[in-house]
Amino acid sequence: MPSAKTTSLLPLEVSSLSYRVDQETLLDNIDLSVDSPGISVIMGANGAGKSLLLRIVHGLLEAHSGAIYWHGVAMAETLRRRQALVFQKPVLMRRSVAANIDFVLRPMGGQYRQRRDELLHQAGLQHKRNQPARLLSGGEQQKLALARALATEPEVLLLDEPCASIDSASTLQIENLLHDTRQRGVKIILVTHDIGQARRLADDVIFMHRGRILEHRPAASFFDSPSSPEGQAYLDGRIVV
């Protein structure tokens, strides 16, 4: 487990990153530097490119141009091993809830059963441990995916709307879990549409609009007075096109 000091994977440096499909530019010349520990929150309207950006910094998609460095090292599988990504749509294996966690714990060796029960307990899923994972409710599936990500003991945790279909009590529980994880020195990059959640968790905010990053500022200053009209409109809940 990483010690309380922050991960050595930072800073994350993204420079002139572009991603295109056919003729459409989905990510447009993105520059981003994340060097502070804690929780960075990515916000932006549907289709802004948030999920794409997460995939690309995690090395799952190859950008057409630009570079990604974690602590000065170009993105590679050895870096991905130290990170975990929870997808917007959880991908669970056709196995029991417990077996989904065991799948990542077993190769790490040691007494994995106890650790698995701990993780399931944290996620509030211990009573579902023997149930087929794909019969869980949508919110339970998201919790399981998060528990599995934590099982890998990542130094960087990338979360794509982890609370999208989660009730408010469980959201609170997950936010506490994320807070604890943050305290352990894990860097968290979180995509969310929940402005309240962003206010509660964010240390800094990255605001995206149509494949570009319009703002990247400390949370307080972003929520006080976003510098872009799109950011302001997003916070006001107005429609931006």
Binding site: R55, R81, L85, F87, V91, M93, R95, F103, V104, T152
Partner: peptide, 23 residues
């Protein structure tokens, strides 16, 4: 369906194969 998740977890090919067979 599993591919991205497995790549995210850096599962080696052999283990991907056995997982697919089992699942």
């Amino acid at each position: 369906e599993y591919d991205e998740q497995f790549r995210s977890l850096c599962i080696p090919t052999r283990r991907v194969m056995t997982a697919l067979i089992w699942d």
